[in-house]
């Protein structure tokens, strides 16, 4: 394999190296890549919102389906800009209230559903060590986060068991996160050595 002649592969490779240069110390190449990423990410977000929301959910229903109900969220959205005018800035609270209200309305039933599923899954179907560990772990973890009672005596002992379970879970999560990052690192090195330099197949 030979070194890549693709312009875009070179761009990706040089930007990857610019970011890895931070391992030595903070430098202008890293800063350039960092700020470039910020700009591109925001620009990408604008483009996706434009096509997936403004065109698909506002323009098309309004122009082709004559669905004038979409004027309501459009108006609510435009009210967000009232915050730039001091005398009517309070109007921006209405769309915020809509987002928060509708969001909570959506989350209450789904949270209850999720909650019952988790409680149901915790109930032991058979008596074995695994089921016992899960029941004890769930209850003790909940007790650890229950602050209405002082963590003394029996409650204190149960919450101590809870923190033991929590530490195991955090350790597992940390181990998983390290593995995910290392796997990303391997991916980048593979890209540099294979796609860009062509050293490995």
């Amino acid at each position: 394999m030979a070194i890549s002649t693709n312009f875009w592969i070179w761009i990706a490779a040089l930007l990857t190296l610019a970011i890895y240069s931070f391992l030595y110390k903070d430098n202008p190449f890293y800063k350039f890549a960092e700020y470039l990423l910020v700009g591109i990410s925001i620009g990408y977000g604008i483009s996706i919102y434009w096509h997936n929301t403004i065109i698909t959910k506002v323009y098309n229903p309004l122009v082709y389906d004559k669905n004038f109900l979409v004027l309501i969220p459009l108006l609510l959205g435009l009210l967000m800009f009232s915050r730039f005018f001091k005398n009517v800035s309070y109007l921006s609270r209405i769309p915020i209230a809509f987002v928060v209200g509708a969001g909570t309305g959506l989350s209450v039933p789904s949270s209850f559903e999720f909650l019952f599923k988790q409680i149901y899954a915790t109930m032991p179907l058979k008596l074995d060590i695994g089921s016992l560990i899960i029941v004890v772990g769930v209850i003790s973890t909940l007790v650890y986060f229950f602050f209405s009672l002082e963590h003394k005596g029996f409650v204190g002992k149960v919450s101590k068991v809870g923190i033991t379970f929590i530490m195991v879970a955090f350790g597992a999560a940390f181990g998983y996160t390290i593995m995910a990052r290392v796997s990303l690192f391997i991916g980048r090195i593979q890209f540099l050595l294979s796609d860009w330099l062509g050293i490995i197949k």
């Binding site: 909650l115 899960i134 772990g137 973890t141 879970a169």
Partner: peptide, 11 residues
């Protein structure tokens, strides 16, 4: 143990 703690936190 991980599942038990995660479930407790999620509840």
């Amino acid at each position: 143990p991980n599942m038990a703690a995660q479930r407790g936190i999620l509840i």
